[in-house]
Simulated scan of single mutants.
Amino acid sequence: MKTRLNICDGNVRILVINWVQTVCLGAFALLISGCSMTPPKTFTFQADVPENFTVTGTGNYIPAPGETCTGRSGKPFRVGRLHFKPDQPKTAHQVEFKVPLTDNEHGCSSVLHSLKLTIEGRWGPGREHTSQESANFSISDETSQPASTPQVFKGQCQWLFRTMGPYRYIVKIPMCRALNANGDMEKRMIGGRLQRDQLADSTVKLVLSVAKIEMPYYKGWWIETPKGWKACTGVWGTQNEEPCTKPYKFLESFKMPDGRDCTVYPNCTEQEQ
């Protein structure tokens, strides 16, 4: 025997109405959710790097105008951070990553305030033989004239060497600075100002080179000779690298990163090459 449902019944009518409302609200929630999940606008950061160098980034985000962002402590926070590390180099000497212009952590909207780059160079055979330098880009909200695409910044790193530790191992520190239009190294750090209204879907590029000549980390602590740099000592009565004073007294030896005992840098030995 078949049973026919009378939709004109009052109770059934209420159930049907509630079901329709639930479906509509669910569809509306899905629509809103779909909008909130729209990927943020981004720009591409790209770096051409010398051999044994790489670049990673840290984006600093601040609350959007009118927003209050709450940290884990329950107190408003001023700056949130996202870290960018390329999974695979685009080529052997190029790295690339996407930088969002907005972020929605902590249940609020925040906007990109600045981008810090970490420039890391390897100078020896071991994993510990790496040193870092930084570059910084600020984000400006001022309206501006259209810029060229991609926006290209040029910089150069110079290795500075010194001895360190009781065994006087050579370590190297990169000093990275901006290059001017003539290709000369300036005193200012690598970086600049980026216009927010020009960044979406654009490319910002850093072309990084390395100087052919290395210099002592401490000026006046090494003497350059025809055979190479010699480290001075004797001022403070230690066997370590110290300021040069006449009559010059030099370290008996120091160690290269690969463990060799040397008397001059970078040739290691003062014998004819």
Rank of each mutant, 00 (worst) to 15 (best):
D9S: 14
G10E: 15
I17Y: 11
I17M: 13
N18V: 15
T22H: 11
V23F: 09
C24E: 13
L25T: 10
L25I: 14
F28Y: 15
F45N: 01
N52A: 13
F53T: 07
T56W: 04
T58P: 06
T58D: 10
N60K: 15
N60W: 13
Y61S: 02
I62Y: 04
P65I: 07
G66M: 06
E67T: 08
E67N: 08
T68R: 08
C69T: 00
C69K: 00
C69L: 01
R72T: 12
S73M: 05
K75M: 12
P76S: 01
P76L: 06
F77W: 12
V79Y: 09
V79E: 13
G80A: 14
G80E: 09
H83V: 09
K85G: 09
K85C: 10
D87W: 10
Q88T: 12
V95E: 09
V95Y: 10
E105W: 15
S109H: 14
S110Q: 12
L112H: 03
K116F: 12
T118H: 06
G121I: 07
G121A: 13
W123A: 03
G124V: 06
T130F: 11
Q132G: 04
Q132V: 15
S134H: 11
N136D: 11
I139E: 00
T143S: 05
S144I: 09
F153G: 02
Q158M: 12
L160N: 06
F161R: 00
F161P: 02
Y167H: 13
Y169V: 08
K172H: 08
M175H: 13
R177H: 12
A178I: 08
N180E: 01
N180T: 03
E186W: 04
K187N: 11
M189T: 11
I190C: 08
G192K: 05
D201M: 05
K205F: 01
K205Y: 09
K205D: 02
K205H: 05
V210M: 13
M215C: 06
G220P: 06
E224Q: 15
K230M: 00
G234R: 01
W236F: 15
N240D: 15
E241H: 12
E242D: 00
C244V: 05
E252Y: 06
K255I: 05
P257V: 11
D258H: 10
C262P: 05
T263E: 10
C268V: 04
C268Q: 00
T269F: 00
E270Y: 04
